[in-house]
Every structure is written in structure tokens, then in C-alpha cells.
Design a protein around this nucleic acid. Structure first.
Lengths: 326, 326
DNA sequence: CTGAAAGCGCTTACAG
DNA sequence: CTGAAAGCGCTTACAG
């Protein structure tokens, strides 16, 4: 060393006010010159904090998820926290493995990013006695905080937009049953129909998988109907991507023959041909909020249990009045 | 405890052959029932391995990056390794912060995923004496392994495709100067022109930023030319996304008036209207390879310094013969 | 096959 | 303001 002891060094590096300023300066200089890096493992062993958080995603390659993770990492980095990323793939076996790893790492908090996470996953994490924030997936229980978009309201507004254009046969192309965001968006769709006294028609509801492939198949089903819809509200932009392709393959024009709307406003949606009418979710901001919530919990500050962010209707050229009133 | 000592427990949980099988079974059962989770920090303090790797990306919200990270995480998870994710944003200050964090965590290896990473970043990491794998960015030095797509070859093939359709005025819409993948793709473009004895015209080369916005602006420039191109080879699909929009805004049809090709085959490219001709990069596979390389290094097995993966030309409907021979 | 001991690199009361 | 000591939860030679 350079004149002092172990403990003093430790204190100096943490900028303790207990230490002589000159000593601090000297020690910090020496440490820097020597390329000293504290061992996170050793520190965390005694402090009982890892200064790391865990982020579980179903699939980081999903642009919704990636956008949100980017917002999480941004705030975490600003506060000197490391982030562990783990894909669960909605596979129960991987979910268990992920939870176990996070426990071993003694993460200070967990963010679960995904609308697809099964409710059964949360108990697994809740068991860890660590703050949990769910992003776009509320959990009915005391274990977790939640950051969400106001799905129902935004969906209602989007459906109203279609109705105001003159549409009456509006299809809902959803995700798989049981996912909360699908359920809520579906509810908003029905709200708007009810308001406008349009009879709900179950045959106009089809289900994809939240990805282009599922959207494509589901859309195909709608055009096998004796009376196809004049507008389709797709659960998300990824589904819309598939629906758009299928509809074009059928020789129909958008929006002249059929209007299409999505949800999320992913980066590509404004570049589609035609540009997609959708609801904007502020992905990065949602990620920021989730991380902010975790930070508040760490600091012992009060924090809302359910944070709701409004979506924003973005009207583009994929929606227009129907050709003929039906 | 339950009859035995500290050391025996440690050995039992690691399935040491030194321990009586019955004892092992008993200890493992007790540990499971008690919900015991080993402390990664404590273990790593003595083993001097963290069983964690660090992944640096410029921006996880970029679909190229997200696809690759997904492939990295997949293999890491299979081998019980945790992954730290950090965004550098190509911001020098953040790069330093990321590198420092990874040092503190004593990661066992680092993967840098990005075509935008500055060469100046690598020394920062190399200093850590830890295996480094660069994905899509080769570094001329002994510090790092590299996994890359065969940019030049694939680019040459794509350009040949445009030439074979009859194009002679082919523009290159690149990324910013100095990025390796841009440089290599540009070289492939020139190779193909040379082969076909088409004179290279500097005015047909424009530069974007690898994102839709930059592609849009760069494309606009090409149509201010007295003799605009009949085909545009975009450095990547993200750039093409912007170029497509701008070209449509100019009232031109694709591919009738101008052919457009991209590079990467991101998930959305096959769903565009028209579907985009491009070069497929096997993103997930590239991520797998990078992680495999790291694993080999950990195991002390020999591993190639430079792994090159071929791209695959995917011809779709955004390219066609030019309207008139120019 | 099992136990006792040392030590990984830190932090933090407790004395001075 | 600084030092000596204990301890965080593991692993691993070293003895038996």
C-alpha cells in the first residue's frame, strides 16, 4: 500500500467523510494509477446488496421488449446498477432457471417485461422477497408493482376512430386468450361498439399469436367470411404486419378495400406502405418508469403500486372510410 | 445443519465424487426443501470466476442487435452463465462506465455487439485481460476474436443481382464513413461494378446513419441528381425502410421506377410492400457463434480468431429490371 | 469419505 | 481521523 491501512483505503474509495481529504485524494490517485477495480462480489458479500437488477423478458428480439429494455438499462446505468438480462421464452423450465439464477445473484430487484408472462411465474419470483415490477402485465397480488399502458382506454379510442370513419363491420384480431393486454384491448373494442350501438359479432373476432405469422393466418380467416369486415383492429403492430401482407396477397387494397389499425407504434409502423394507424406506446419511457419505480422502492420512498400511462392514437393512412356503407 | 459440516455440504451440492452418495442425496434434499440458493458472490470470490459474461451493445432497440443478443443469451443460459447487458450508445463516456462495471463484476468474458463500435473501445476492454469476442466488428489486434458475416462477398452477390437485372446506374446508400461493415459492403459493390465493367460514379454514393431517418435523407439526395439511379443498394434494411418511404413520397413506384435492396433481412423486411430484396444475416446464429467462441476460450480449447459466416441473397419483389435501358 | 482451517476482498462497528 | 478485528458465504488444499 501507500502508507495507510486496508480500512482507510476502503473508506477513501467510498469518499467517506471520516477521512482526511488529502489522504482521500492520495489514495484515489494511487488506485486510479494502479487500475484498481473494486470487486463487486466481495463488496456485495458484506453489504448484502448486489447493485444489480434482473430483467426477465420473453424474447429480447421482439421490438416491443427491446424498446422497453433500452429504457430500463438507461436509468439503471445512470445509477450505477448492473443489469442481468434473461430470456424466458415463456418456457416454464427456463422461467425456473432464470428465477434461480437471479436468486443466486441476489439481485436487488426484478423487472418482468412482457405481456405474455404467465401468472404462475410471479409466485416463483415473489418467493425471493425482492421488489418486482411488472411491465405491461399486472398481477393481482401484493408482491409486485406494475407499469402499464392504459390499454382499454386507448383501444376504445382507436375503435372509435374506425367507427367515426363510418365502419360498422370491424374485426378484432387478437392475441392468444388469457393475456391481459389482449383482454383489455378487446374490452376497449367492445366498449366502443356498445357506445355506438353496433352489435358485437363473435365471428369478427379472430386470434393470432402477437407475431406477423399469426396475424397473417388470422386475417385469412376473416376473408373466408360471407361478409368480411371493412376494418380490422389488430391487437399489435406485429400482428398487423402479417395481416397487411395477407390482405395484399388477396388482391385487396389498403385502405380503399379494408382499413387496418395496429397497436404499439413500433419503429417500422410509420414506414409501412401505407403507414399504419396505431396507438403509440412510449416504450423507452415505460422502461424508465419501471426502473424508477424500483429505485424508489430501494430508497424506501413510497411508490404507486399501479402506474398507468396513456397511449396516443396515431392516425395514418392505413385507415379510411369504407368503400360502401354496409 | 443436518449432521454434517460446512465443507461436506459444499461438496455435496457440487456433486463431488468424494462424498457418500447417501449423504449427497440427503443434503441436496434438505437444501431444496429449505429453498437454499448458493451465493454467487461468495462462490465467485473464491473461485475467481463470476460465471457471468458482459454484452455491450450500442443500442438494444436496434433489431439487428436484439436478434444477436437473443442468440447469445440462449447459449449462455444453457451453460448456466448469467449475462450482463449494457448499452453504450456509442457514447465515449458510457463506454468507459460500461467497461468499468464489467471489470468490477469480474465478468469471465465480453461480447461486443455492434457494427458501430469505435476501434478505440477495444483497448479499453482489452486492458481487462478477459476474452473478448467482437460481433460484426473486427479489430486488427491480438486482443479479440471476431464473428462476422462475409460482407464483401454478400454485397458483391447482391450487386451482381442488380446488374443481372439490367441496371447500370446503381447507387450505394451507405452508413457513416469508417464503419467496417459499411466499408466492406461498399467494397463488394465496387467489385461487382468492376467485374461488369460499369464505371464507378462517386455521385451515386450517399451516406445515411444506418437508421430509417438517415436512409430517407440520403435517398432524397439521389433524386436531386440530373440522372438518378435505377437501383439503390442500401447498406442495411433499416436504411432501406427510410429510402422506401422517401421514394414513394416522390411518387415513384418500386420496383417499376426504381429497384431497392437492403442488407440484414430483419424480421419486417419480408412484410414490406413490396417485400424487400436483401441479404439474410442469421442473427441468432451469429449470437450463438459468439457465445460458443467464448465458451471454447473458457474451456481452453482452440478457437478460430476470425469466424466468417456467409450471407444469403434473398430476392424479393423490390428489385426488377429497369424501365428503360439507360 | 469427512472435518478443521485458511482465505477470497471487501465493509463496518469498535477502539483509540 | 485511522487502525485492528471480525465477518459476509463460500471453496479447497490438508489432515485424518
Amino acid at each position: 500500500m501507500a502508507g495507510v491501512t486496508h480500512s482507510t483505503v476502503s473508506r477513501a474509495l467510498r469518499n467517506s467523510p471520516l477521512v482526511n481529504q488529502d489522504t482521500v485524494a492520495k489514495i484515489q490517485r494511487i488506485a486510479r494509477d494502479a487500475g484498481y477495480r473494486i470487486s463487486a462480489a466481495a463488496r456485495s458479500l458484506v453489504t448484502r446488496r448486489s447493485d444489480a437488477i434482473g430483467v426477465v423478458v420473453t424474447n429480447i428480439a421482439d421490438p416491443f421488449v427491446a424498446g422497453v429494455v433500452s429504457g430500463i438499462e438507461e436509468i439503471a446505468g445512470q445509477h450505477g446498477l448492473s443489469v442481468f438480462l434473461a430470456n424466458s421464452n415463456a418456457d416454464p423450465e427456463r422461467e425456473v432457471r432464470v428465477a434461480r439464477k437471479f436468486e443466486e445473484q441476489r439481485v436487488d430487484g426484478i423487472i418482468v417485461t412482457s405481456s405474455r408472462v404467465g401468472a404462475r411465474y410471479v409466485p416463483l419470483l415473489a418467493h425471493m422477497q425482492v421488489p418486482i415490477v411488472l411491465l405491461n402485465n399486472q398481477h393481482p397480488g401484493p408482491y409486485a408493482h406494475a407499469v402499464m399502458i392504459a390499454n382499454r382506454e386507448a383501444s376504445r379510442e382507436l375503435t372509435r376512430h374506425l367507427i367515426s370513419l363510418g365502419h360498422r363491420r370491424i374485426a378484432y384480431l387478437g392475441d392468444r386468450h388469457g393475456y391481459q393486454s389482449d383482454t383489455e384491448r378487446f374490452a376497449g373494442y367492445r366498449d366502443a361498439l356498445r357506445e355506438a350501438r353496433i352489435r358485437f359479432q363473435p365471428c369478427l373476432v379472430v386470434h393470432g399469436d402477437g407475431k406477423p405469422e399469426g396475424g397473417e393466418t388470422a386475417a385469412a380467416g376473416l376473408f373466408g367470411l360471407p361478409e368480411p369486415p371493412t376494418a380490422i383492429f389488430c391487437y399489435n403492430d406485429m400482428s398487423a404486419l402479417g395481416a397487411l401482407r395477407r390482405i395484399r396477397a388477396l388482391g385487396l387494397r389498403i385502405p380503399e378495400d379494408v382499413s387496418i389499425a395496429g397497436f404499439d407504434d413500433l419503429f417500422f409502423s410509420q414506414f409501412l406502405n401505407p403507414p399504419l394507424t396505431t396507438v403509440r406506446q412510449p416504450l423507452r419511457h415505460l422502461g424508465n418508469l419501471a426502473m424508477d419505480t424500483l429505485l424508489k422502492i430501494f430508497a424506501g420512498e413510497p411508490s404507486e403500486i399501479d402506474i398507468k400511462v396513456p397511449g396516443e392514437l396515431i392516425v395514418r393512412q392505413s385507415t379510411a372510410p369504407p368503400k360502401e356503407q354496409s
